[in-house]
Nucleic acid binder design. Structure first.
Lengths: 238, 238
DNA sequence: CCTTTATTGTAGCAATTTGATACAATATAA
DNA sequence: TTATATTGTATCAAATTGCTACAATAAAGG
């Protein structure tokens, strides 16, 4: 039931901040452990025969069901008392698992933080075997997270804001085709500020990384917006 | 002689890219191991009773003799085969140390990369007990580094370029007082491109993070430049 | 169908920022 | 005193961004 010591690296783990965009808000996936009611970021350990990146990718795949996953490493957390064996024991106990005091998962862990960007609509979140549930929570209304997970989320947000100008972030948070308004809403949600509609449109179009497609007729009583997609070749340069 | 297993975390190490600026070039500190002639970044292991950041700080202090050290974490390297036990064995052997095959330092390591910015002139590099020498090498003329250390250097450079606009990088690479030309040279060395003298001066002055002091009379047959220092309070905002 | 309403796409001009050039003000040597 | 290299700024052109305006719809409601 417990992961075996010889299969995994000691003292290292990863945690992922999985971002999705609802159309209005940025949300992230949070696990809730059975009975203990502890909230945590999805994470895991690294198998000895596995690249770090593969371990993270596999972890996100299991939670989201997606296979194509955009990942960015943003920070590694190594404070002395960041991992808390008591919390781990408590979670185990609530699950009916009694851990030996010297079990390796109760040792100190340095954790590597990754953020992931996914298309909210494509995801069917699935809990792991220790968890009750996994749910989307708005960035601004997170439950109290265990250990230093809130700090990890904060750093992830800082990182994604930083990357926004450099990498085509929207590409991963939106479906294949999207309207200019949706793209702008993504930027606004990430930056947590309003952007000027016309300036945004001009700037993003002048980058030349978008392809324009047919119009989207939503049924609303107004001019229908064009759909766009990212021109992946050109977007590479950013 | 070898570090003991119960004192350090397993499977995790750190490596540091220590930048100095000579006035013309960006250089970094590289260790050369005795006899084996292997070149490596200064690095180390993390004691179980020590914050990650403290471990790195202590490591840089030992190599540079400095106590006030600017550190930035930039990336964590976790490829499956990045650490190479054969190299470690070879280095040990050249030092007259025969390692048991199952010794923990021969295990797989995930390493956390930090870069450090220091005042070149204040540093007296000192090798560790396993090393022949520690020397400054120009960024553009590095010897062949062991394992994935060149990749780590490349990532560090990428990171420092990225941070240049955000953090007052010059502050740490220059002495307390410096001329505008020196500051510009730092930027040029990091970005590896020439910057327009007048535009640079206007821009950096308009940030309002510099204090102007007396002139510097070098003896050169031309107008003497002012000396500047960073206004640390105002520089915080960047 | 014609009008109304909400939204979209883009033009146009002002304000700001950046690029490029010019030039006055030195320190020192000759 | 004159010549020379460099520094600090001013100036104006060019590019970018902020802001407003307005025409072009898509559907609803008479």
């Amino acid at each position: 039931m417990l992961p075996s010591a010889d299969k995994y690296l000691a003292n290292v783990s990863f945690d992922t901040v999985i971002f999705g965009f609802t159309g209005e808000e940025l949300k992230i996936l949070i696990l809730e452990y059975q009975n203990s009611g502890k909230f945590a970021l999805p994470g895991g350990y690294i198998r000895r025969d596995q690249d770090l990146l593969d371990a993270v990718k596999t972890g996100v795949m299991k939670r989201t069901g997606l296979t194509k996953i955009h990942l960015e490493q943003f920070h590694t957390f190594g404070r002395l008392h960041r991992s808390d064996p008591d919390t781990t024991i408590e979670i185990g106990r609530a699950l009916g698992i009694e851990m030996p005091k010297d079990h390796w998962v109760l040792d100190r862990f340095i954790t590597i933080g990754y953020y992931s960007l996914i298309d909210y609509k494509q995801v069917q979140p699935s809990p792991n075997r220790y968890s009750d549930s996994i749910n989307w929570y708005s960035i601004n209304k997170l439950p109290k997270l265990m250990m230093d997970h809130q700090e990890i989320v904060d750093k992830a947000l800082e990182a994604i804001r930083n990357d926004l100008g450099k990498k085509p972030i929207g590409l991963n948070l939106l479906p294949e085709k999207f309207t200019m308004k949706e793209l702008r809403k993504v930027y606004e949600a990430i930056l947590n500020e309003k952007l000027r509609r016309t300036t945004f449109q001009r700037k993003i179009l002048s980058m030349g990384i978008l392809k324009r497609h047919e119009k989207l007729y939503t049924g609303a009583a107004n001019k229908a917006p064009y759909l766009y997609s990212f021109d992946k070749e050109k977007a590479e340069q950013y």
